[in-house]
């Protein structure tokens, strides 16, 4: 019993009954996702997202990322796998001057930069692409996020069978025809739920397919 209570005290185990106060929640901008997360993303903490690249994972975050920037704050992308498109940022309603893109040389520098951005109090949100993360590193990031009242979204690779981290929210994204399939791997104070489809057709009609893709053509690359 003592080991369980120790783990509880260190925040590595929690149960539904003694859940902490839900704290501030940030609406995700998608009704289904808000419902799945009982209101939205938890604010001022670290959120982990397992997703392949290019299936709409950034678009899922966009409504939430652009919202706090009303207060003239920065949005920081650290280590994006490709260039972040300025035109996309503009279309999302962001001034490009408010966006910083960092390309640190090492993973350690990336974590340092994330900490600095979170702590500074002038970043609304930080998006970090990083596959490995230790418990100690996560704790530091969480403290910084709390301190600077900012959110950190970490995009990690698809391999989810890693060390279990004491994280507030962990999501697994997979592609779907109309948008994304979201599965909650872990949510503080939440019970396991079935994966849910987030429909993005309303926001991005051209980035969704009907089930019967009648009028679409198949293209074979010339090298195939």
């Amino acid at each position: 019993m003592s080991t369980v209570s120790e783990l509880k005290a260190s925040g590595q185990i929690w149960s539904l009954h003694d859940q902490a106060s839900p704290g501030t929640l940030l609406s995700t901008g998608f009704a289904e996702l808000d419902q799945l997360l009982a209101g939205g993303f938890p604010a001022n903490t670290v959120i982990e997202i397992h997703s392949p690249i290019g299936i709409g994972e950034l678009r899922l975050l966009l409504p939430c990322l652009t919202r706090p920037l009303i207060h003239a704050q920065l949005l920081t992308f650290i280590n994006p796998p490709l260039l972040i498109g300025s035109q996309m940022l503009q279309a999302a309603g962001l001034a490009v001057e408010q966006v910083l893109v960092l390309q640190p040389a090492t993973a350690q520098d990336a974590l340092w930069a994330a900490e600095q951005c979170l702590k500074s109090g002038c970043c609304g949100a930080v998006v970090l692409w990083q596959s490995t993360l230790s418990i100690a590193q996560l704790k530091r990031l969480q403290l910084c996020a709390q301190h600077g009242m900012a959110n950190l979204f970490i995009f990690r690779g698809q391999q989810q069978m890693q060390l279990s981290l004491p994280i507030a929210l962990s999501l697994q994204l997979s592609p779907a025809l109309q948008g994304l399939k979201v599965q909650v791997l872990k949510r503080r104070g939440g019970r396991p739920m079935a994966p849910m489809l987030v429909d993005m057709t309303a926001r991005w009609p051209r980035l969704a397919l009907q089930n019967t893709a009648a009028n679409s053509a198949l293209v074979l690359s010339h090298s195939a």
Partner: peptide, 17 residues
């Protein structure tokens, strides 16, 4: 949202909109 620095030859099947 994510752009390649330089376009690369396409080597996959696409279902076009």
């Amino acid at each position: 949202g994510l752009l390649l620095i330089q376009p690369i030859p396409l080597r996959m099947q696409l279902q076009l909109q």
